[in-house]
Computed example of a mutant assay.
Amino acid sequence: MSYQSVLRPGLFEGQTVIVTGGGSGIGRCTAHELASLGARVALVGRKAEKVEAVKAEIEEDGGIASAHVCDIREEESVSATVKAIIQEHGGLHAVVNNAGGQFPSPLTGINQKGWETVVRTNLTGGFLMAREAYTQALSKSGGAIVNIVADMWGGMPGMGHSGAARAGMVNFTQTAAYEWGHSGVRVNAVAPGWIASSGMDNYPAAMRDWIRNLATHVPLKRMGTEAEISAAICFLLSPGAAFINGDCLRIDGGASQGSPIWPLPDANNNEPFNGFHRSSTPKVLSDD
Rank of each mutant, 00 (worst) to 15 (best):
D287K: 13
G184M: 07
L43H: 12
E74H: 10
I18P: 04
A206I: 13
A35Y: 09
S66G: 15
W262S: 08
S139D: 14
P272G: 11
R131M: 12
R120I: 00
M207G: 00
V82H: 07
G23S: 13
A56V: 03
V187P: 04
A67G: 04
P157T: 10
N147K: 03
A144K: 06
E33Y: 15
E179D: 14
A232D: 03
S197P: 11
V149D: 05
G10H: 12
I251N: 05
R40M: 07
N268W: 02
G114S: 08
V6C: 06
G10L: 09
A80K: 15
M169Y: 13
A242K: 10
G126K: 04
A53R: 11
A231T: 15
N98M: 09
E60L: 10
A231F: 07
G101I: 08
S66Y: 12
T216N: 09
V284Y: 06
N147P: 10
A133K: 10
P104W: 09
G62N: 11
A65S: 04
A255V: 13
S280K: 08
D61Q: 12
S279V: 11
N213F: 00
S197F: 13
W153N: 10
L285I: 07
P219R: 12
E75P: 11
T124R: 11
H217M: 05
I18T: 07
A255Q: 15
H182R: 12
P265W: 08
F243I: 02
G90L: 01
R222D: 01
L220I: 12
D287Y: 12
N274P: 04
N269P: 02
L214Q: 14
S105W: 01
F127M: 02
T20Y: 03
F235H: 09
Y203C: 05
H89V: 02
E132L: 02
A150H: 06
R8M: 14
G154R: 10
G109A: 09
G181M: 04
D287N: 14
I148D: 00
G154K: 13
P282Y: 08
P104M: 04
A191G: 03
T281Y: 05
Y134D: 00
N202P: 03
G193L: 05
G25T: 01
A215I: 05
E132S: 04
Q102P: 01
S105A: 15
Q87V: 08
D71E: 13
A48C: 03
G253D: 10
A232Q: 10
V19N: 00
A177G: 15
I261S: 08
V95P: 05
G184N: 11
P204S: 08
